[in-house]
């Protein structure tokens, strides 16, 4: 956000969103994640970086992938990891959030990983607890570790992020993944495009640092990276788009459409995929797909983030 930030090592106490990170912060985390990939590919994967520290994964929305990725990342760093899944009734979920946070805080964790259905939930929690908070997705706001793992995947495949053309396609309106990626990719100098039905674009999208395309073919032209987003089932049946069939026809990625992109374009998806809705199996399982790499990079990026937040200088740092 601020223009000139001194090139110091990472000094954040929480990771609430990409919006709070500078280009240097992002590069620092990606470099650290590269090291973590190396560790994870060894037979003995366990380090003692976070030994003695307690990590709590607090998930108000179910997410097998993200939660297990954070769990594994913490364990590889030697932390004691506890998972808490809170079934959120719509009436009491707000109370549950702050009250649960206070209860957990009393157990003196060092890292709290939070997933919640409301935008701003992680920031609210960070105000109430004494430990580091990692936002693992808050409503339609941000999902910073997803954007970091996407960036790591791209950087490892292409050697850089700057000047690459990245096309994000799908439900931008409700997507925290899209917001975090738009912020991160812009910070790192990529050219970001979005393609979506107009009903699934947020107001002011043209002022969010992206180029908007109405047709997938146009948005894909000469793209280096294609990110497909998941379309939630409840949004398919007439409210935002008329039908699954029509959506796939206009915005689904198949092999024929992918030809518009660069021959070596990367195809990405944050998962879980709806095959035949936003992406055809031939593409998801095809040679361009780096969807499995994304999962591997997810563990590495989360290791890097937790390690960075646990650096001694960050105990008293501001978010």
């Amino acid at each position: 956000m601020s223009a000139a930030r001194p090139i110091f090592p990472f000094t954040h106490r929480h990771l609430l969103g990409i919006a709070n990170l500078s280009e240097h912060d992002i590069a620092f985390l990606l470099d650290k994640a590269d090291e973590a990939v190396h560790i994870s590919r060894q037979r003995h994967k366990k380090t003692s970086t976070l030994k003695g520290l307690t990590q709590i994964n607090l998930f108000f929305e179910p997410s097998t992938r993200t939660q297990s990725s954070f769990e594994l990342a913490g364990k590889r760093l030697g932390a004691d990891v506890m998972n808490m899944s809170v079934a959120s009734s719509s009436v009491s979920k707000g109370e549950t959030l702050v009250d649960t946070a206070m209860t957990l805080n009393a157990m003196r964790p060092d890292i709290l990983v939070v997933r919640h259905g409301s935008a701003g939930a992680a920031a609210l929690l960070a105000q109430k607890v004494a430990c580091s908070v990692i936002n693992a997705g808050d409503g339609a706001h941000e999902h910073p570790t997803q954007a970091l793992l996407d960036a790591l995947t791209i950087r490892r495949a292409r050697g850089r992020i700057a000047r690459l053309v990245v096309t994000i396609c799908g439900d931008i309106l409700h997507s925290r993944v899209a917001r975090s990626n738009i912020l991160l990719l812009n910070a790192m100098g990529a050219r970001v495009r979005v393609v979506a039905p107009a009903t699934l674009l947020p107001t002011g999208i043209e002022r969010m640092g992206v180029e908007v395309f109405d047709r997938l073919e146009d948005g894909l032209a000469d793209a280096d990276v294609v990110m497909m987003l998941r379309l939630q089932r409840e949004r398919m049946a007439g409210a935002f788009v008329p039908s699954v069939r029509e959506y796939f026809q206009r915005f689904g990625l198949d092999a024929r459409r992918l030809k518009a992109a660069k021959p070596d374009a990367l195809v990405m998806h944050p998962g879980p995929m709806n095959r035949g809705v936003e992406i055809a199996s031939e593409v998801a399982d095809g040679p361009s797909s780096v969807i499995e790499e994304q999962v591997e990079m997810g563990v590495a990026v989360r290791m890097a983030v937790m390690e960075a937040l646990a650096l001694p200088q960050n105990a008293e740092a501001t978010p």
Partner: peptide
């Protein structure tokens, strides 16, 4: 309020 600020916050807007 619906607008760019709401869009960045990920909050649904009221036009």
């Amino acid at each position: 309020n619906e607008g760019l600020f709401a869009s960045w916050l990920g909050l649904p807007g009221i036009p």
